[in-house]
């Protein structure tokens, strides 16, 4: 972004964050006006929107500040914990049956969640729980390395992609509220998932966040893929390759542990690709810039 342009325009990461905050606030306002008990949530999100609007205007002159990165991450993680719950109260529908139907259509009849159900009763449940949980350190590490010790352009690009990915994903959380197969198909699974220590850890973490919610799209998959795509685009092929098996195992874990439908994963990958593509276009690499010239 040219300096004079930067003083006039909002940073794209701020635009994406403000847009999703505005959508959430307006949706909650409409739901509240129709009788939903969402007054507190509305006040919280309206306050977030107003605060962020003020901050983003103040940050217009600093397109690559580290502060923006921290704020965007904080806002998105806040929305992650709030949206999953308010969406169920704000929307008059639950999307689980549609997502399950989409999965069955993809697999020409049978439900992939039920096909994989037997794996949940084997030692794979425990092994995959480790990788499901490993998403958190991988994500935090990727965010840390995306924000710190980078040239300003790269940091700005990382933050923009992160904001776009989460903002688009939250549209799914809000308008297609779903709890995943673990709730929707609970009575159809032959046995519950039988893991050990790490599975119990995953269960406790999910419960601490208010139970399963925000199934569509899978941010476990979306955020992991985005981090890998960012590494690839920045030429850090080794990091992308090293974590590639983790990505595959996270995909498998979300299915075997019954937190996501296959369409959630497809949507997560598609959004990661979209976010990566958008930011790639905004900030071409030096070589790409040279080629374009």
């Amino acid at each position: 972004m040219a300096p004079e342009e930067a003083t006039r325009r909002l940073h794209p990461a701020d635009s994406a964050s403000l847009a999703i905050l505005a959508v959430v606030t307006v949706t909650l306002a409409i739901s509240t006006s129709r009788g939903a008990d969402l007054g507190n949530a509305l006040a919280l999100h309206a306050a977030l929107l107003a605060s962020y609007a003020v901050i983003s205007v103040a940050l217009r002159r600093r397109p690559a500040t580290l502060l923006r990165g921290i704020l965007v991450v904080a806002v998105m993680f806040t929305l992650y914990t709030t949206l999953g719950h308010v969406a169920f109260a704000a929307m008059p529908w639950i999307a689980d049956p549609w997502l399950e139907a989409a999965d069955r259509a993809l697999f020409l009849g049978p439900s992939p969640s039920l096909i994989l159900a037997p794996l949940g009763a084997t030692r794979w449940a425990e092994i995959l729980s480790i990788f499901y949980a490993a998403f958190i350190p991988y994500l935090y590490l990727s965010i840390f390395l995306g924000l710190i010790g980078r040239p300003e352009g790269e940091r700005s690009e990382f933050v923009t992609g992160f904001a776009v990915l989460y903002a688009l994903s939250f549209l799914g959380y809000l308008f297609l509220p779903a709890r995943g197969p673990i709730v929707e198909l609970a009575d159809q699974f032959p046995t519950p998932v039988q893991g050990g220590y790490f599975h119990a850890l995953v269960l406790r973490s999910v419960e601490a966040a208010g139970g399963p919610h925000g199934a569509f799209p899978s941010l476990h998959v979306g955020a992991s893929f985005y981090a890998a795509l960012f590494d690839l685009r920045q030429g850090n092929t080794l990091r992308a390759l090293i974590y590639a098996p983790l990505l595959v195992l996270i995909v498998l874990a979300t299915l075997v542990l019954r937190y996501h439908y296959v369409v959630d994963l497809i949507a997560g990958v598609a959004l990661a690709l979209l976010a990566s593509r958008i930011t790639g276009r905004r900030a071409p690499s030096p070589l790409a810039a040279e080629v374009a010239s």
């Binding site: 790269e154 920045q234 030429g235 092929t237 030096p286 040279e290």
Partner: peptide, 10 residues
Amino acid sequence: PALGRETPPD
């Protein structure tokens, strides 16, 4: 430059 993030030589 940081390792793994070397810009292409001109």
